[in-house]
């Protein structure tokens, strides 16, 4: 699980820094007040789901950095689309780092605002971050 967390962290940093110009600081295991969630399922030799949790302010910063839109210009759809793409990129990047020789089928990302209650249930690999007072989380759940 430790190795899985390290791979997940590298994937998260790669995506949010390169594509969204956001810098994250790992924090403890405490679940913060997230405003929204994007989730994506994957199937292959491994099967599971990756969820990305974001506070409202961080989601807006990512839209701003990606699309150059000011807060007043961005729509709910822009925010949803952007957070779903974050989940898509992190999941793909994570699976590629896990094993470049294996191919996985990814679902189309789903979006929940607020996050689904069940997202914190059960065994999972969880990573939480801070970015200038805003919150970012990623949860990886493997299924059989």
């Amino acid at each position: 699980m430790k190795e899985m967390k390290e791979i997940m962290m590298a994937a998260i940093f790669d995506v949010v820094e390169q594509m969204f110009y956001v810098f994250l600081e790992p924090v403890g295991d405490e679940y913060a007040d997230y405003a929204m969630e994007a989730a994506i399922q994957f199937k292959g030799d491994l099967k599971g789901e990756m969820s990305v949790l974001v506070s409202d302010g961080l989601a807006k910063s990512m839209v701003q950095n990606l699309l150059g839109l000011e807060t007043g210009q961005m729509t709910k759809e822009d925010i949803e689309d952007c957070v779903k793409e974050v989940a898509n990129m992190i999941c793909g990047n994570f699976l590629g780092r896990l094993d470049q020789t294996r191919t996985f089928a990814l679902s189309v990302p789903s979006f929940s605002q607020p996050p689904r209650k069940a997202v914190t249930d059960g065994d999972a690999c969880r990573l939480y971050f801070d970015s200038d007072g805003e919150s970012f989380g990623a949860i990886l759940r493997l299924t059989n």
């Binding site: 898509n88 793909g92 590629g96 020789t101 996985f104």
Partner: peptide, 9 residues
């Protein structure tokens, strides 16, 4: 342009 970037894919 894709996130699915395994060698096989």
């Amino acid at each position: 342009i894709s996130t699915e970037s395994s060698d096989e894919r």
